[in-house]
Amino acid sequence: MSIQHFRVALIPFFAAFCLPVFAHPETLVKVKDAEDQLGARVGYIELDLNSGKILESFRPEERFPMMSTFKVLLCGAVLSRVDAGQEQLGRRIHYSQNDLVEYSPVTEKHLTDGMTVRELCSAAITMSDNTAANLLLTTIGGPKELTAFLHNMGDHVTRLDRWEPELNEAIPNDERDTTMPAAMATTLRKLLTGELLTLASRQQLIDWMEADKVAGPLLRSALPAGWFIADKSGAGERGSRGIIAALGPDGKPSRIVVIYTTGSQATMDERNRQIAEIGASLIKHW
């Protein structure tokens, strides 16, 4: 067993022997301040990774656009098919120029040779490549099948209805392509620590998230040296922004954090800054 596999296998073990965790309302004060600064709703939840206990939450059962955070769930569904012998990570998928959609920095470079399922998941999570996500959605049967996968996990809230990039439209009061912070946090925890996926697939999923290259201005910008984070960000229309993450000190994750916002007129930089400040408060009061 590799060191990384050992780390993920012992996530519940280490967490069980940690000192009790206590909620700190100071972080919620910052979440509410972010709402004021952005002029928009902000949803927040913080779960203990081992027990699933909610440590703090704000608007945990209000719907927010998922945006690209759905790509972690998508690759979880792909990995479940791999575990069941219905898919192979090494299978190569070929596609054409007509398949390319807006923001496809990886797939646009491989029109000639195609990409493997493993490479597509890596591109979808680490670079948020939209064509990679659409190609992977095709392998599982489309958005409705991802929703069905989530329902089978016990998540009857999260739903995907459309493809990239239309799913980022974020129309107010439109339930399409949305989740709730509580539902997303619980589902992410199941994917990373539950028995739904094999140990190898859980490790692969967290490795992809740990290698995320496009979430630097968010929670990662607030992390002290030595902290662990595996995350996936999302951005959408109407001032929408979000991030889902597993993080913790001492090089291992111990909490799940989900943050979503929508309806702001603020710039992307300002949305990023507010999420980073929430992260800084979380870490300060850990």
Rank of each mutant, 00 (worst) to 15 (best):
Q88V: 11
I256H: 00
G141R: 06
G76V: 05
R273I: 10
A230L: 05
H94Y: 14
R220I: 03
L55I: 14
L10M: 12
D161S: 07
L120W: 00
Q86E: 12
M180R: 12
T267D: 14
G236D: 04
M268F: 11
V8S: 15
S80A: 11
T187L: 08
K213N: 11
E270Y: 08
S68Q: 00
T69M: 03
E175M: 15
G239H: 04
G242K: 00
P253S: 09
G52S: 07
R7S: 09
Y44A: 02
L79E: 02
K284W: 10
E62D: 10
P20R: 13
L19N: 15
G142I: 01
E62Y: 08
R7A: 10
D177W: 01
T186I: 15
A266R: 13
K213P: 04
L100A: 04
L223C: 13
G216Y: 08
W208M: 08
I206W: 13
D174P: 04
K284G: 10
A200D: 15
E35R: 03
L218R: 02
T138I: 11
A23V: 05
G39A: 14
W163E: 11
G194W: 08
F58Y: 15
F14D: 00
D33Q: 15
L197I: 08
G226M: 07
F228G: 05
A123Y: 04
L10T: 14
M127G: 06
A77H: 10
A170F: 11
L136G: 02
N272K: 02
Q88L: 12
E119T: 06
D269A: 14
N98S: 14
I93R: 03
T138V: 15
G194P: 11
G43E: 00
A230K: 01
I11T: 07
E102R: 11
N173P: 07
T27M: 06
M66W: 01
E277N: 11
A235L: 06
D155N: 06
N272H: 04
I243M: 06
T158Y: 01
D113R: 11
A23C: 06
Q204M: 15
R41N: 10
K144Q: 13
E35W: 01
F70K: 02
P60N: 09
L135I: 14
S80G: 11
H24P: 06
Q204T: 14
T107Q: 01
G76W: 05
G239L: 01
I140D: 02
M209S: 02
P20G: 05
R238S: 11
N130D: 05
I243W: 04
M67A: 15
M115F: 04
P224K: 07
Q265K: 15
R92W: 09
V21Y: 05
R273E: 14
V31D: 01
P60S: 13
I283G: 04
A23W: 03
A34Q: 09
